[in-house]
Nucleic acid binder design. Structure first.
Length: 574
RNA sequence: UGGGGCGUCGCCAAGCGGUAAGGCACAGGGUUUUGAUCCCUGCAUACCCAGGUUCGAAUCCUGGCGCCCCAGCCA
């Protein structure tokens, strides 16, 4: 426990993932002696946004396969063919997130833009073979000529240009002789194909005036994804090119490209179902919108389903990996419940987070029979089941705070906390009894006067049973802190699937963030460092905010609450 | 009146012709100085529907039904 890297749950290299249909395909390929026994995958993000939990599924799949098969490799390759939407910040965030998740691309960091020159060569090859042509149709005309889902398209009037003319025109496209949109290079396949992706898809478009984050102003023509991807895979010797279901009907073109260009290798594409999470949106367009409109504080806002957001929320890499293992990989559309993700982080943090006490809504308690000048240093264990996590000191004083939620003047019999005239155990300390309630002019309870039983430290009281245990913090030694209580960002389980509203934004949960500025935490937390995680007993798991917390002003983010059977019970009681 | 996929418990998901794994959730019970954790127990005579093949079908065949994706010079 002292060395987190020795924990099989924490170390991605010590636990192999459950099998799935893709691994079965690899097993068969290996058994058949394909690919010289190699297993080589790649994770190919476009750097046009931050990675989210859906990407984590793909990362765990691809890097997980590389990890679990002997000699397996997984490349990190940026699919950077559309400079208009991409930038270096996204490149860096993606690298950081993949690393943080615990995966390593070693020396295989690639960019599709690394291959621009080779890609150009392959395009020329297609032209030479009469399999590609320069088309002057406008975007709108191209759409018209394409036909519809049910009706075939028509051949472009430029479809039968000579090889020489195509070669010349394409060269001049590259040289910058034509304006944006004036010409494109298209594959010459079949305008009547029932598969729209085979109706002479665009290979290259002209884009002047954009600075590519990797290639600068070197190019004014950029290859399309469908052309770039299979060739990048081929160039890297990828054996299994794994992508999501929506690319399934692009596969014929993927195979066409590899077959007709003299690529050094024939990779195969396989598709799996992308992840949907309840009460979240996963499309990059929508996540970008949330950030751009300031609906959240940024890509790493703890309410975002991004890797950076989950990290800031307090999720661990191990929990996210575990989640990805548990949800599995299949081809069936799926929407996973939040409870699944929460179960994973609770499981990790229950085992690994040290305990501490923090009072969210402080209510002052004065223990009248505790001498004014007295104080004690008590011991509390950092984990109820793991003695190796050690103990810490906590200060007990005459004045302390408990949570407002833990006291009621009267309450149903099931209520196990403090009530007027009743007793309760202060965790790691004494049993106290509520003697008097002090209220302000509005009738609000502002203070409790209590007595304590000195014989109950580490011992049960004689002759009576104390049902409840509540947490507390010394008023004298406790440290004020800001606590941010996060909840789901949306109040609808499927915010972007509801056609009855004009925008998914209407489903935003107005209570997704509740900031508590007057919380008090035990003094041992004063030194807590950014990203350190704790269980605040009886409340939940919290982590020190990586950006806003400082020794002068501690800020804790709630990762997830503890399971709360009392809340359920109370609801049933009405 | 196109093409490509998918339909097994509330949510994921095994199953690959021999008689329905597992996880999450849920419900009961036990332990507990966290109403947490942990530990037991329960939870699909049933696999979208209907036919058929077979000694035997969630698995094979036929026909339906439902859902998802595709008409960017995005990925």
């Amino acid at each position: 426990m002292s060395d987190p890297t020795s924990d099989p749950v924490t170390d991605p290299n010590q636990k192999s993932a459950p099998s799935n249909f893709i691994r079965q395909i690899i097993d068969k390929d290996l058994a058949a002696g394909l690919n010289d026994g190699r297993v080589h995958t790649r994770f190919p993000p476009e750097p046009n946004g931050y990675l989210h939990i859906g990407h984590a599924k793909s990362i765990c799949l691809n890097f997980g396969i590389a990890r679990d098969y002997p000699g397996g490799k997984c490349n990190l390759r940026f699919d950077d063919t559309n400079p208009h939407k991409e930038n270096e910040e996204f490149v860096e965030s993606i690298k950081a997130d993949v690393r943080w998740l615990g995966f390593d691309w070693q020396d295989r960091l690639y960019f599709a833009s690394d291959y621009f020159e080779k890609l150009y060569g392959f395009a020329v090859e297609l032209i030479e073979k009469g399999l590609a042509y320069v088309c002057d149709l406008s975007a709108e005309e191209t759409r018209e000529y394409r036909g519809t889902l049910k009706a075939p398209g028509r051949d472009s009037p430029y479809r039968n240009r000579s090889v020489a003319e195509n070669r010349d025109l394409f060269k001049r496209m590259r040289a910058g002789e034509f304006e944006d949109g004036a010409k494109v290079l298209r594959a010459r396949i079949d305008m009547a194909s029932p598969n729209i992706n085979m109706r002479d898809p665009t290979l290259y478009r002209i884009r002047h005036g954009v600075v590519h984050h990797q290639t600068g102003a070197e190019w004014c023509i950029y290859p399309m994804y469908d052309f770039t991807h299979p060739l990048s895979d081929a160039l890297e010797g990828i054996t299994h090119s794994i992508c999501t279901l929506e690319f399934e009907d692009h596969r014929p073109f993927y195979d066409w490209v590899v077959a007709h260009c003299s690529a050094p290798y024939v990779p195969r594409q396989y598709e799996f179902a992308r992840l949907n999470l309840q009460f979240a949106v996963m499309s990059k367009r929508k996540l970008t919108q949330l950030v751009a409109e300031g609906q959240v504080a940024g890509w790493d806002d703890p309410r975002m389903p991004t890797i950076a957001g989950l990290r800031r929320r307090g999720y661990t890499p191990a929990a996210i990996r575990e989640f990805c293992d548990r949800i599995g990989v299949s081809k069936a559309d799926n929407t996973v419940e939040m409870g699944m993700l929460e179960a994973c982080i609770r499981e990790d943090l229950d085992r690994n987070a040290p305990r501490a006490m923090a009072v969210m809504h402080p209510l002052k308690v004065v223990i009248e029979n505790y001498p004014e000048d007295q104080e004690e240093e008590l011991e509390a264990s950092n984990h109820p089941k793991d003695p190796e996590m050690g103990k810490r000191k906590i200060r007990f004083t005459r004045e302390l705070y408990i949570d407002k939620e833990d006291f009621r003047e009267q309450a149903p019999n099931k209520y196990k906390r403090l009530v007027s005239g009743g007793e309760v155990r202060l965790r790691n300390a004494y049993v106290i009894k509520a003697e008097r309630v002090i209220k302000d002019n509005d009738g609000e309870i502002v203070e409790l006067r209590c007595s304590y039983d000195p014989a109950t430290l580490g011992a049960n009281p004689e002759g009576r049973k104390v049902k409840g245990v509540i947490h507390w913090v010394s008023a004298k030694y406790g440290v004020r802190a800001e606590v941010r209580l996060y909840d789901r960002l949306f109040k609808h389980p499927n915010p972007d699937g509801d056609r009855s509203v004009s925008s998914f934004l209407e489903h935003l949960n107005p209570d997704s963030l509740l900031v508590l500025t007057d919380s008090v935490v035990e003094s041992s937390l004063a030194e807590a460092k950014p990203e350190q995680r704790f269980q605040f007993e009886r409340e939940g798991y919290f982590c020190v905010d990586a950006k806003d917390s400082s020794p002068e002003r501690l800020v804790f983010n709630r990762t997830v609450t503890l399971r709360d059977s009392w809340a359920k019970l109370e609801k049933q009681l009405g």
